[in-house]
Nucleic acid binder design. Structure first.
Lengths: 222, 222
DNA sequence: ACCTGAACACCGTTCAAGT
DNA sequence: ACCTGAACACCGTTCAAGT
């Protein structure tokens, strides 16, 4: 394996030895850099040094390629560590893991849009244990898991759009953004001024805190 | 006004009297029914009984039409009632209002995707008052407002995808869904079984409760 | 088995031309 | 001012054909 058979003169039908994995990897990289809608079959093929119809030998259609890219980008999401016994710890870990997986490839939340609910459901199953271990009712366990997933998914979607989009500018730090004032309205309040900056890490930490405090309050867990 | 000048023989360049508003209304309706990506300039034009280039007299390009559609669908969002003095009440009202606005046109969360952060930011300004009135610091006020908005936005995005998509089936009630089991894995736990049903109204109510309880716990508001 | 060019039905958009 | 058909550069996808 790994043998590249450089065969014919070089022009027509030369074997390139393209694999599904290579195509997916390149597709993900290009979408992360240029946005999901930028990538067309023709552009991807050109980047791979191949003609467009070639891709249809490896994938049935564009959607199958996209689905494979989503799966590849989300494959690491199953490596969530085992429960620690401290549910606050477990919630924090799960949410942090999920966020970092979803933001590792900024294009993935965009790609998932059509498959949103199904993808979210798949992740929910892995979250049930945390709330089950707290002694919640089955309905509350399912609801809590679902909401935890939905929240991280929503956060990561916004976050990815912010980091790759044009609505925010001037990243003053790693995850701190200056918010472009779309309205010409003068910012009078201090809170309005505070809206002008966006620290994604701090905001996520606050979201996690809010969730944990909410769960603790509603289910009487000191 | 309102006079339709039926002029020439009927074939070429007959004035139709098309307005921006008519185009936007029709575009929204078609997208709600068939999905955002279904709508093309040509299909919209055909539906309006007009040729495709005509739309480019009323709108600079497709994106301007989309932006106008978003604005139209979100215009009602400013009608959030005044503060009641009870912050729990105000949070509940705001979130409920925002959710119903975002779900009134199922296509709107899809359309907002590119404009996600900017749209969310616009709404945040209207939410600041609630937490400001609680005596929060400017930073906490901004963070709380932002997270409240993000949460409803994320919830409505999932919800709209669920209601119009194919991942869930068998709506057994108005907002209760049977979740298609994508995995063939047997559902052993009660919680896993509970995941098989999805009551959107109850889940949203739980999310609101969670948020309010979290805010109350973190900011010592009995 | 793997890759090609040509072709099909689309798409957004431009433009000269009609009334 | 408002609308048209023709045309341009794209797009996903199919298909017969090459090695």
């Amino acid at each position: 394996m790994g043998v590249v058979p450089t065969k014919a003169k070089g022009k027509p039908s030369t074997r390139v030895g393209l694999t599904r994995e290579q195509i997916i990897t390149r597709a993900l990289a290009l979408m992360d850099d240029n946005g999901a809608s930028w990538l067309t079959m023709r552009r991807l093929a050109e980047d791979l040094g191949v003609s467009a119809p070639t891709l249809y030998w490896h994938f049935r259609d564009r959607q199958e390629l996209i689905d494979a890219a989503i799966d590849a980008a989300l494959s690491a999401i199953n490596d969530v560590p085992d429960l620690s016994g401290d549910w606050r710890q477990d919630v924090t870990t799960f949410m942090a893991h999920m966020r970092s997986d979803l933001t590792a490839h900024p294009c993935v939340t965009d790609l998932m849009r059509d498959r949103y609910p199904a993808s979210a459901e798949r992740m929910s199953r892995r979250a049930l244990d945390i709330f089950d271990a707290m002694g919640m009712s089955p309905a509350d366990t399912a609801g809590s898991a679902r909401l935890m997933i939905w929240r991280v998914l929503g956060f990561a979607t916004l976050e990815n759009n912010i980091r790759t989009g044009t609505a925010y500018h001037e990243a003053t730090g790693t995850n701190v953004y200056r918010v472009a004032s779309t309205q010409a309205a003068p910012k009078t309040t201090d809170a309005q001024r505070a809206l002008g900056t966006l620290d994604l890490d701090a905001l996520f930490a606050y979201d996690v805190e809010l969730f944990i405090t909410g769960i603790a309050g509603l289910h009487q867990h000191g």
